[in-house]
């Protein structure tokens, strides 16, 4: 067992544990914080995979902006806890069962049939240099320039949409 693999296993355990923590916490604040931790762990995976740009984007956008927004809304609404109800008592067990089946199925497929059965080299110097980032920018702003611009419009539209939704209705008399 190489050092890489050990490191990977430890990180995976952390990722799974924080995901479960998100799932099981009674308090929504704890859930959000667990999720932040999970996102940071996934960012470390990105670094291991030789994608530093995505790792940084993950931390700033997901762990930073998006989760802060979540925490803000949770606290704004005061919705940390929900009262216990018994609306769908069997849902938990059915969902758990189905999810377990799905996980087994997926693992089975990936371990037996996944096509690119390559291995991932440890991030060496060549991959993690600035040159890599420059190349990424090259691809992003040449080949994918139009999608990139469209994305910016999408963000603008989402922003306007959010404002319109939240805005108080004008009183019409």
């Amino acid at each position: 067992m190489t050092l890489d693999l050990v490191f990977f296993l430890i990180l995976s355990l952390i990722a799974i544990a924080t995901a479960l923590g998100m799932l099981l916490s009674r308090n929504a604040i704890y859930s959000a914080l667990f999720l932040v931790l999970n996102f940071v762990t996934v960012a470390v995976f990105y670094l291991l995979l030789g994608a530093p740009f995505i790792a940084m984007a993950q931390i700033t956008i997901y762990a930073g902006a998006i989760m802060v927004l979540f925490l803000f809304v949770i606290m704004l609404l005061g919705a940390e806890n929900l009262p216990e109800t018994q609306t769908l008592p069997w849902q938990k067990y059915l969902a758990g069962g189905l999810a377990a089946v799905l996980a087994v199925e997926a693992t089975f497929i990936f371990l037996t049939r996944a096509r690119p059965a390559g291995e991932i080299a440890p991030p060496d110097e060549a991959v993690n240099t600035i040159a890599n980032l420059r190349e990424l920018g090259d691809v992003l702003f040449r080949q994918y320039l139009l999608p990139f611009e469209v994305t910016s419009i999408l963000l603008l539209v989402a922003m306007v949409g959010a404002i319109v939704l939240i805005r108080k209705e004008k009183r019409v008399h």
Binding site: F110, L111, A114, I120
Partner: peptide, 21 residues
């Protein structure tokens, strides 16, 4: 050396936990 399948399985597990949530 980490086989890519490990990453994919990890991704599947995280996805399942999300779906469960």
């Amino acid at each position: 050396m980490v086989p890519i399948n490990y990453y994919i399985v990890l991704s599947a597990i995280l996805f399942t936990i999300g779906a469960l949530g």
